[in-house]
Amino acid sequence: MRTVNMHEAKTHLSRLVRAAVDGEPFVIARAGKPMVRVVSIDMPEPGEARRTGFMAGEISVPADFDRMGSREIEAMFEGDG
């Protein structure tokens, strides 16, 4: 992650923000000490997995889901289909 000093951040803020929105977050430092991290609002934290449960309440799984089509599958394997 890129680190910029306070003066550079003030001078080039628009360019730095555009880069952050494009997926290039950066850190602003004062006297070499990191102060803040700038990331796009939609960007997940490093290592954060957002996939699990992302469609909670949007779909329903039938109770017989694990048995759906079992007769047809058996017929294909047994040569009856």
Rank of each mutant, 00 (worst) to 15 (best):
I28L: 05
G47T: 10
G47S: 09
A56R: 15
P44A: 15
A63H: 06
S60E: 15
A29Y: 04
R67H: 12
H12N: 11
H12M: 08
A19Y: 00
A75T: 00
P25A: 09
I59S: 11
E78F: 13
P25L: 10
A9R: 01
R51D: 05
D42N: 14
E24L: 06
V4C: 06
R30S: 08
G23W: 00
R67A: 14
P34I: 12
K33T: 12
V27N: 02
G47V: 08
I59C: 09
A49D: 14
V39I: 03
E45C: 07
P46V: 03
A56H: 13
I28N: 01
M43I: 01
M1R: 05
M6L: 15
K33Y: 10
A63C: 02
V38S: 01
E24W: 03
R2Y: 03
R51L: 06
E8F: 04
T52C: 02
A29G: 05
D80C: 00
E58Y: 07
G53T: 06
F65M: 07
V36A: 15
T52A: 11
E8V: 10
A20F: 00
E45R: 13
G81T: 03
D66S: 11
V17W: 02
H12L: 13
G79R: 00
D80T: 15
A56S: 11
P44T: 13
R51T: 11
R67Y: 06
G79K: 00
F65P: 00
N5P: 01
A31P: 01
R71A: 04
T11Y: 01
E24H: 11
V17L: 15
V21G: 03
F26Y: 07
S60C: 06
M76V: 03
F65E: 08
E78P: 01
E45V: 05
E74F: 08
G79P: 01
M55V: 08
E78L: 15
D66H: 09
R37N: 06
L13R: 06
S60N: 09
M76D: 07
V21F: 02
A20L: 00
M6V: 04
D22Y: 04
L13K: 07
S40C: 12
G32C: 03
V4I: 14
E8C: 01
G23P: 08
V61N: 02
V21R: 02
G32M: 00
D80K: 15
D22N: 13
A9G: 04
R67L: 10
V27T: 14
R18S: 10
A63D: 13
R15L: 08
M55D: 12
R18P: 00
V39T: 12
V21T: 08
R51E: 06
G79W: 00
R2W: 03
G69I: 03
D64Q: 09
R51Q: 07
A29H: 01
R50D: 02
R71T: 05
M35Q: 12
N5S: 09
F54M: 15
A31F: 12
P34N: 12
R15K: 11
G53F: 07
V21L: 10
F77N: 02
M35R: 11
P25T: 07
P44C: 14
E72A: 13
M68Q: 13
A29I: 02
R30K: 14
D22E: 14
P44F: 12
M6G: 00
H7G: 04
D80N: 11
P62T: 07
A20P: 05
G53K: 10
K33E: 14
